[in-house]
């Protein structure tokens, strides 16, 4: 009895969360595919060295897999952390990714609808005038920053194991974690990801001044002037 009655609700929930669900599915599919192709490459190297292959599970629990995963995670979360925080203070005329040119800074409580200016449907911590408001006012950056730092730390921990594995394979001594942080390998993995993420943000900010994608909220409406700032479709 409850099944058919719930179905429209389920369909509605799927539709209204379709963006998260699609990206979640694409993420899992990509991570799974990375695991399988990475395991295939790793096993081929093992066999060529005269060793038994690890298999997919052995590979996904190896530092070789996780250093590759986390070096990309940290850079993605750094990208969004910077995008979220730097757009408070920096603007770009004509970009839908920028706030209004005259709205630089943290803005007033009235504009942010906090404290006495909170709306009936405002989050509870936005209505509070104490530490909860201060924390909630930065909760997005705090979580993004925490995931960035955690991922970068995980990259360093899995990275030193993967690096030392290669060191031992090549008959060199392993290095401790603290020494690995000063090794070119750590910074090469880090910076090659940072530069690509920063380029992608720069391209998004600048390209969206002049280029359009009809219907996308990341683009200005097709007919809006190039000079219009902080307008999303």
């Amino acid at each position: 009895m409850s099944g058919p009655a719930r179905e429209p609700g389920v369909r509605s929930a799927l539709r209204t969360s379709s963006l998260s669900l699609v990206f979640g599915a694409l993420f899992l599919a990509s991570l799974t595919a990375q695991a399988f192709v990475g395991a295939a490459q790793h096993d081929a190297d093992q066999v060529a060295a005269g060793l038994e292959p690890l298999g997919v599970w052995g590979y996904v629990t190896s530092s070789t897999f996780w250093v590759d995963v986390t070096e990309n995670w940290q850079s993605e979360f750094l990208q969004f952390l910077l995008f979220i925080t730097l757009t408070v203070w920096f603007v770009q005329r004509g970009s839908p990714e920028s706030k209004r040119l005259d709205a630089v800074g943290r803005e007033t409580d009235e504009e942010q609808r906090v404290g006495a200016h909170a709306q009936p449907d405002s989050p509870a911590w936005a209505r509070a005038g104490d530490w909860r408001l201060r924390v909630y006012s930065h909760s997005l950056a705090l979580v993004m920053g925490a995931v960035f730092v955690g991922s970068w730390l995980a990259q360093s921990v899995s990275g030193v194991v993967a690096y030392n594995e290669e060191q031992l394979r090549e008959r060199h001594d392993p290095v401790p974690w603290t020494e690995y942080l000063a090794q070119p390998d750590f910074w090469d993995r880090t910076l090659q990801n940072w530069q690509s993420e920063l380029l992608a943000v720069l391209a998004m900010v600048v390209f969206s001044i002049y280029l359009r994608e009809r219907g996308s909220p990341e683009s200005k409406p097709v007919g809006v002037a190039h000079t219009a700032t902080s307008v999303e479709g």
Binding site: T61, S62, S63, V143
Partner: peptide
Amino acid sequence: ARQAAAALALVAAAAAC
């Protein structure tokens, strides 16, 4: 935050496979 903590726990477990 919970999802991130779970992911990091998995990474730590993987590092000590």
